[in-house]
Amino acid sequence: MASSIENNNEKLTLKSSDGEEFLVEKHVALQSTLLQNMLDSDCSSADVIPLPKIDARTLALVLGYCKKHADASSSKQGELNSFDSEFLKDMDMGALFNLVLAANFMEIKGLLDIAAQKIADTIKDKPHQEVREIFHVENDYTPEEEAAVREENRWAFEGFP
């Protein structure tokens, strides 16, 4: 019994790519399927779990998301939804991409989905020149090639500038 209680309070240490360590409660870490699998297979016996692809700023954001969702799992969904939309509200693109990569790597589906949705929303309804600018995509089409791409999927480009 004592050991089970002890386990519930167990904490993990995660280490970011830039060497910062984060002490995380186990139930918060379990929001990540990657960490859950590591815990299940007992791969986490090491004192510190390194996350070499995730910097401290991103990891802090990820863990903030995980804590809110872990602690609020029994509370109202509406509260979580408004937390989610506030969470990404004024985030710059660089941070958003770091977050999507971290959520993908750590397998945190809810976070991956809201970050992917946010990027998708940025693409939607914008002329392609603007999308290229926002994401710094270099257009390597010749005008002829660009016209051919439009022609190939003409149905999708109807009414598109």
Binding site: Q117, W155, A156, F160
Partner: peptide, 14 residues
């Protein structure tokens, strides 16, 4: 997360 039509339109980016 986009309607298919909008996803197809990304083919014009590069």
């Amino acid at each position: 997360f986009l309607p298919t039509k909008y996803a197809v339109r990304t083919s014009i980016l590069s």
